[in-house]
Design a protein around this nucleic acid. Structure first.
Lengths: 200, 200
DNA sequence: GGCCACCCGTGACGAATGTCACGGCCGTAC
DNA sequence: GTACGGCCGTGACATTCGTCACGGGTGGCC
């Protein structure tokens, strides 16, 4: 019997997946969590065989949650996500995740992947894996990404500078460098671009 | 037997819901569609009793799809959505939709709502309904929303003006008016604000 | 008729933004 | 050692952006 923990902040998808997994004879859903923090707590308490973690969750996201779980429990983690991008896959594998499944795959595959991972194998969606091999990784430096992240909600240059403890001129230089690398013309275009590729 | 059409571009949630609904004795899933256009076609061909439509779909969104279906077939429509905002609910009801269910509700509720709607009753998530009654609707004019939509991807004022066949000064005035009404300081903040509330 | 809201435009102003050139400080690679 | 790239900062510059005041046009409402 494979003991499974599910974490997803969206009730409809979480309860639907849990109900489907319960129909499988060899799977047992031992916990349903709506955020990363409770998933970590429950994983430490119940020590499930496999944790199925949604990437997009408030607070701790799926990868952060997996990293915390893997540091303290001998569980295996599968990341499920709507926005499957090479950048995210890299982050996930770096955190020690064993499965990576985009939500563009049918629900039947979830049980299959859980069995694979529980058996000690890894599973990565082949489509994304191919993308991750062929694609360009972010040409931006860490600091440049910091600036993009800090300005993602429409903050002004001065506010970005304040939150990063920089001077406004430095922020402008970083932004200018980003726009040059990406061939774009404004910060908001750069943030959209970076978000679509999973860089931030 | 209630005949149901499901439309959702995300395979995992669509197949999961379809599988769960098939477990119900009184429901029959007659079609699964991944976009609005095919949902309209299939609805016209199969004339299902209830159409379960995801709001967020490429091309025709859920509400547009419902409007097209309701004009040509005697089906009833239920909108399912991740971002349930009063503005969206208003749009949906205006299109003649009979059910409105956010994805923050458990999957069991889907079958219950389908039965309600099939029986000729309406169902609107009480949480959202309360919000819709109490909240402010958008204080922005149609043209102001046009400008926000046109500039949602980081376009410059001149580009917005070109795509709306306006002068740059007029666009700036609309933007200025929007920012005044919302108490914000930049276009990108205004677009974020409007998106969060379902105005665009 | 007047009043008002919305729409479109112009012109001018200050502030914010992006570009460029420059210098300095650290690491790592050769 | 030198060379290079990332990082931080300054200063000056042109462009863009948001604000304001103004005028004209339409259509609905009293």
């Amino acid at each position: 019997m494979i003991r499974v923990l599910i974490a997803d902040d969206e009730d409809m998808i979480r309860t639907a997946l849990a109900a489907l997994l319960r129909l499988e004879d060899d799977l047992e859903v031992v916990a349903e969590c709506r955020d990363g923090e409770s998933a970590v707590t429950e994983a430490q308490r119940l020590k499930p065989d496999v944790c199925l973690l949604d990437l997009e969750m408030p607070g701790l996201d799926g990868v952060d949650t997996a990293a915390k779980i893997l540091r303290s429990v001998a569980s295996r983690c599968v990341i499920v996500t709507r926005h499957a991008r090479p950048g995210v896959l890299r982050r996930a594998l770096g955190a020690g995740v064993d499965g990576f499944l985009p939500k563009s795959r049918p629900a039947d595959d979830v049980a299959a992947v859980i069995r694979e991972v529980a058996a000690g194998r890894r599973y990565v969606d082949p489509e994304i894996a191919a993308d991750a091999l062929s694609d360009e990784r972010s040409p931006l430096t860490d600091r440049e990404l910091d600036v993009l992240r800090a300005g993602a909600r429409g903050e002004t240059v001065a506010e970005i500078a304040a939150s990063l403890h920089l001077s406004a001129g430095t922020v402008r230089n970083h932004v200018s460098s980003v726009l040059g690398k990406l061939g774009l013309a404004s910060r908001q275009q750069a943030t959209i671009h970076a978000r679509e590729r999973g860089w931030i």
